[in-house]
Design a protein around this nucleic acid. Structure first.
Lengths: 211, 211
DNA sequence: CGTCATTTATCTACCGATAGATAGAATAGC
DNA sequence: GCTATTCTATCTATCGGTAGATAAATGACG
């Protein structure tokens, strides 16, 4: 029953943070959702920072695992990026949530240092993964340039998520992504006269756990 | 003494929200900063939602005024967009702050409806302005396409601001913007072999009030 | 096996601090 | 004197966190 509770706490807390942010996360709410008392949450996570950092760490680990599987399975850049994008889309789809580390980034000044560090790790992991993916297509390109492109993709998708969430309209996200493709920031997946490397058109299966 | 206090409250509250978000904004903190009691803040802004909405509304109005002046004065698209970008950069420059409506978008679920409405207005105003700017350069393009491009630029810049803030490093913002230019999402301002309409290179004078 | 000690996990009850908000007295300017 | 503004004082609700008790496993040892 022990690790079950710890896991249940994290399972309950994560969507709460993704919905309302770190500041709005309360031990009491989590405890109520899990069906225990807030003191029990403190038993597993002594401080709020501990809980927040654990959430962000697990979040990053799961994301990295999913993304790395993409890199291994699907060697097509276009469809990899499509699935990558769809993960962020999935968060909006689930009750207009945001990427956990995205919303934490907005709250940076209020975060305990240990949480901040995990947010940094998430960003790093995304840039690294995107760089890896991009450099596979254009191995000759300078690393600095590829990293810049990776950062641009990461930032742009995060921004689309933020703006779409602000409007409470997932269509805004889709429009932004479409415009990124039209501008050449993302590879076009099907019809229009894009540029950049092309890909097939399908959306494929699951979009992960709603990152 | 009356309107002075009201203005002083807003002047004090705005940077607080930009730094730590709506949830972290407290009547007591604002009152202390202004030099009055919290009850006096309630006199001018009965509820927190009133204060938040007033902040967002004024923020949008000031932004629109500044941007419209840009459209009138400087007819060059590249330098207009450069100044537009620099406004968002300026927020980071001032104690790693974010666009007020950007951070409010992240907190959407916690916002009173009146604040939410003002956030929407800000987004609309930005898309409208960017569309106006873009359509001046390419009048033939379909309105839907221009709006998509405007949304892309707005989202991308907001995302760059969010990621850079999360890292606490304004250089991240600059890198992202540079990569946007390289990708063709934003017009290149000077040296490289960009595409799109070109512009001169200067940064010009003030970047507004740190939007 | 049985006994004793320890650990695990949770509870109840509370702490000081702070949140937004309100009522009504005091003060100031016209 | 009336109105606009600010004050004092207080309320209720919630926050993260702690203290202390307890029941149930777990393990050590004779």
């Amino acid at each position: 029953m022990s690790m079950d509770t710890k896991q249940a706490i994290m399972d309950a807390a994560r969507p709460m943070v993704q919905s309302r942010g770190y500041n709005a996360l309360s031990f009491r709410d989590v405890a109520t959702a899990v069906g225990v008392k807030s003191a029990s949450v403190h038993y597993h996570f002594p401080t709020k920072g501990d809980l927040g950092a654990a959430l962000a760490r697990l979040y990053t680990e799961e994301a990295v695992a999913y993304f790395d599987a993409l890199l291994a399975d699907d060697s097509d850049l276009g469809s990899c990026l499509q699935k990558y994008t769809d993960v962020f889309r999935g968060a909006l789809l689930k009750n207009n949530r945001m990427c956990l580390c995205g919303i934490l980034a907005a709250e940076r000044d209020d975060l305990p240092v240990e949480v901040r560090a995990e947010v940094d790790r998430f960003t790093d992991a995304n840039i690294r993964w995107l760089s890896q993916l991009l450099s596979r297509e254009t191995p000759k390109t300078r690393a600095k340039e590829i990293e810049g492109r990776a950062l641009a993709i990461f930032s742009a998708i995060g921004g689309a998520q933020l703006v779409a969430r602000g409007r409470g309209d997932i269509a805004v996200f889709d429009e932004a992504i479409a415009a990124y493709k039209a501008a050449g920031l993302l590879p076009a997946t099907s019809n229009p006269a894009g540029q950049a490397p092309l890909a097939e058109k399908r959306r494929t299966k699951g979009a992960g756990s709603g990152r």
